[in-house]
Design a protein around this nucleic acid. Structure first.
Length: 485
RNA sequence: GGCGGAGUAGCCAAGUGGUAAGGCAAUGGUUUGCAAAACCGUCAUUCGAGGGUUCGAUUCCCUCCUCCGCCUCCA
């Protein structure tokens, strides 16, 4: 929490959009704290990215979407960001599944990375400024392990693996409150579970470098401890060191990463690099599906492609994902997805009405949020996205009476909040647009003519026929529109 | 078992020590040849259950019930 507010020269002239800093809950201190760039220039943050061994599911995307809203809110408020999100392209699962697919690890992970990027684009996620991959940063990882070994925080075992010695780092467990969790870390010298395939001094010590094993196939790299591959926790620490240094503003991920992943990152990075590592921890809670855990066996593990196949757009999915506060479980249902379509249409309509009342010349010069101030405040108050959505609807109701410059200012505020939420609204369906098939157009035109001549039977028949092939007709006074169902 | 989180109308979901945002669905009316769409309305005396503190609690405290996450390289 910096006392002095840095001067942000890139802010819109004439006033600050953001008259108070963004307040965000911090997992480590369990308090809401103001966010200010520690270097006074840009807010630098790291997000744990996907492991690219299959399509990401909507639970993964809840995290990425919320991180995107976080970044957009900062930027809308005039704060520059530096967003780093990694790609985990080497681990047990990527190796196992690439072999099953008969592909090289590189080819395999590249395919899933491309799929991930496509999904991100559909969901309106801003690309991170830097997106490092684990494999291309193995030298940095080896260097960090060497530093840890040199300082006595890590040790090599007989099989060529290297482990972090938890007992060497007194701060271990602060993030996840290990001391309150009855875990006897570091004193199980002989207790070694059968699944513990590598040799380590303490059951709780975690691996930094994994010695080469036959099932790794071609996937190994040389190191001072022999051939092998990096451990998962270390990948992130090394890439953070490379791009953000010893100390940076914020680290984010899903709640499941608090322990052990983020706990281990802290231990590795603070021991190897000094510095305080992340100043703020931002964790997003899991989503539930139909009130329970998402799982393949229950058939409720949805990917974006699954939802698209059911006729839902990515933007509708995004709307649902930001429909609950990030620290509460979100109960995802297909019904709520259908509701999102109506809600987005309602926002789009409100925006069109506001634009119709606005003075176009005033839009460019207006600053602030007008009737949408409450929505903006919600976003800056611990990223309350559902509160912001509610504020959009109530703001629209207030703004309906505005004309000219006032409507313009309101529209600008609306658009700022919308941009922060990362929502794009559906275009009004053009009645006889080019993408309406000729056959459909003929049916609709035939119905309209029948209707004009009061041939209700024929008109209704054609209406049913259109509905059967997926088109809904909406009649106006002098014309009609078509909407794909 | 330990730690953390959640239970708010049919569904999704904000919020507050002072009497419950918003969206979807539903429903009444206007309109319509009938629908749809559109427009104007209605829709939680109540916030898992029971105690306690308080002038007053859904909001604070205690107990209980239910659900979820982590404690195994899952966002």
């Amino acid at each position: 929490m910096l006392e002095k507010q840095p001067d942000f020269p890139w802010r819109a002239g004439g006033g600050s959009l953001n008259n108070r800093a963004m307040l965000l809950f911090d997992t480590l201190t369990r308090t809401e704290r103001n966010l200010r760039p520690m270097d006074g220039t840009s807010l630098r943050f790291y997000c744990c990215g996907p492991t690219v061994y299959g399509p990401a599911h909507i639970g993964n995307f809840r995290t990425f979407v919320l991180q995107d809203v976080f970044r957009r809110t900062l930027e809308t408020g005039g704060i520059r960001t530096l967003h780093v999100r990694n790609i985990t392209d080497v681990d047990d699962k990527t190796i196992r599944d690439s072999q099953a697919a008969g592909k090289t690890l590189t080819d395999f992970t590249r395919g899933w990375t491309e799929k991930f990027h496509a999904d991100c684009a559909s969901l309106g996620l801003l690309a991170p400024h830097i997106e490092p991959g684990a494999v291309e940063h193995i030298p940095q990882q080896i260097a960090m392990i060497e530093a840890l070994v040199g300082k006595g925080n890590a040790y090599a075992s007989d099989d060529g693996s290297v482990y972090f010695r938890i007992s060497s780092f007194p701060g271990y467990g602060r993030l996840s409150r290990l001391d309150e969790r009855e875990l006897d870390l570091g004193k199980t010298q002989n207790a070694r579970s059968s699944s513990d395939e590598y040799e380590k001094d303490s059951l709780s010590d975690f691996v930094l470098w994994k010695g080469r094993r036959p099932e790794d196939g071609e996937n190994f790299w040389p190191s001072p401890w022999g051939e092998g591959r990096p451990g998962w926790h270390l990948e992130c620490s090394a890439m953070i060191q490379e791009y953000l240094g010893d100390s940076f503003d914020l680290h984010s991920g899903g709640v499941d990463l608090v322990f052990p992943h983020h706990e281990n990152e802290i231990a590795q990075s603070q021991c190897a690099c000094g510095g305080h590592f992340a100043a703020h921890w931002f964790h997003i809670t899991h989503l539930l599906v139909d009130g329970g855990k998402m799982s393949k066996s229950l058939g409720n593990m949805f990917t974006l492609a699954d939802l698209t196949a059911k006729g839902h757009t990515a933007m509708e999915t995004r709307y649902v994902l930001i429909g609950a506060h990030y620290r509460k479980p979100l109960n995802f249902t297909l019904d709520s997805l259908s509701g999102a379509r109506e809600a987005l249409a309602k926002l789009a309509k409100g925006a069109r009405q506001l634009a119709a009342n606005a003075d176009p010349d005033a839009v460019l010069t207006s600053v602030g949020f007008g009737p949408f101030q409450a929505a903006w405040d919600s976003l800056n108050n611990d990223l309350n996205t559902p509160g912001a959505l509610g504020g959009l609807f109530t703001g629209l109701r207030e703004a309906a009476a505005l004309k000219g410059a006032e409507a313009s200012a309101a529209l600008a505020g609306f658009n700022r909040v919308l941009r922060a939420l990362g929502l794009t609204l559906p275009e009004e369906v053009s009645p006889l647009a080019a993408d309406v098939p000729d056959a459909i157009r003929e049916l609709a035109e035939g119905r309209w003519q029948a209707r004009l001549s009061k041939n209700w039977a024929e008109s209704d028949r054609l209406r049913d026929e259109l509905a059967a092939v997926g088109w809904q007709v909406k009649d106006g006074k002098e014309d009609y529109t078509l909407t794909p169902i």
